[in-house]
Structures are given as C-alpha cells and as structure tokens.
Amino acid sequence: MKMKFYCLVLICSSNVCGVYSQSTKKKSDDFVNATVAVAKHQGTFALAYVHRWRFGVHKKFGVGLGGRFTSYIGANQHYETAPAQLTSGGTGPSVIFKETITANIDTFLVKSPQVNSLNVSINIDYRLSKKITAGFNIDAIGFSFGGSRNGNYINGPSGKMTDAKPTAFNILLISDNDRGSLNSEFYANYSLNEKWGLKAGAQFLFTEYTTATEVQQFPSANNRFRNKSLLFCAGVSYQL
C-alpha cells in the first residue's frame, strides 16, 4: 500500500515538472501580479497584467506589454519643479546628461498626496533558472486621476498655499522630459509552482501634481511639480 502511494506521488510530481518545463519553453504567456511597495511616509499598491513573448533558443529572454494600475499614498511629500526646460535648461534627449539647475527648482509640499494611475507598461525579463526570473518594467503612457489636494508652494522667502490635482496625462520620454505619474520596478520573481510566484525588488515611482495656478514664475511660469520615490516592493504573480 505504502509502495503504491510513493509511486503515485512520484508519477504526479514528474507530471508537474513536465508541465512546468513545458511552460517555460512557451513562445508567449500571460501573467498578472499584485505588488505593494513602501518607503518612509509613502506606499503604493499596484496591479499589473503582462503578455510576454519569449525569445532565444531556451526562451529565457522575455519582452512583455501590458497594463498597470498604481495607487500611491503619502504624507508630507516634497514635490519639485518638473518641466525639463526648467530643471535642465532644455528639452530633448540631451537633458539626461545635463546637471540640474538648482536655482530653478522650487518646492510644492503636499500634506496627503494620493495619485492613481493607469498606464501601458513594458516588461523585460530574463529567466536565470527554472525558478528565478529577474526583470525590469516601466510605465510608458497612460493617465492619472485623484482628488484635489492643498499644498504649500515654497520659493525661498515667499510662498503660496494652493490646490493641485494629479497631472492627467502620463508619458515616458527621457529623464525630466517625462510627464505625469509613472511607475517602474527592478525585481526578481521566484516561482513557487507552475502558476504562482513571489516577487521582490525596488520600485522607482514618479508622481506629479499640477497646481491650480502657475505658482512658479521664475525663470518662467510653471504649474507642474514632481516627486521621485524609491520604494521597496514585494508581491505575488500568477501565470494565466
């Protein structure tokens, strides 16, 4: 009886392994994940869906396209002047090499920021072993929504209290040319079985508020302020 039971377990587990290795050789697959991220006085919850195409002889390299909903909440966060024209003195790809012009950076302090964004996201990963995959994902384009918040615009010896809303349109360009709220992650995913996995990594998030009036006037009028957050993230993934 005992012998039969062991045989049954052996057959079942070999079948599972068979299916598992078969799934890792697929040309494409779909997965979803739920992630929470935390840092000092701020946190996020994100839900993502990704359709992934696998490349290479062993299908280890994956490129995916999907959608991600991110909800950000924080307390007493400093948002800084966002437009590349002010932060770097120009626009275009070259801003990535330019020093930040600190004299042009003003602060918008938001007591309780809350920004929700829904973006098309890009996912790139590499399967290091049967169980472990390392990857990177980034939001590319989408929109944000959330309630109006009162904030404190601080410009040296003067300031204004003003209302602001999350910048509605999000787009990934280069460096400070970016606009709106965009999420990105470096992560490692550990497969528990064929379907479920655990992920952990670092999340880098841009959130952006647009003030009701152009509170910044020097060197040119501006109403966009950005917060850059680095958070620790962890979550679960599920293969569809």
Binding site: I154, G156, P157, S158, G159, K160
Partner: peptide
C-alpha cells in the same frame, strides 16, 4: 487667513518670550 500668499519670516526663534523678525524685501 489661509496663508494663500505669504512671506516666510523664518524659523520660530522661541516658543515663549519676545522675538523679532525682519520682513524681507
């Protein structure tokens, strides 16, 4: 009342007693 347009006079020098702040500009 809402400090919608303000001048920062600086850090509060003390929680009690006489104190003076120059208004900049």
């Amino acid at each position: 009342k809402n400090a919608s347009d303000y001048i920062r006079l600086g850090k509060l020098l003390s929680t009690r007693g006489k104190q003076e702040y120059i208004v900049p500009g």
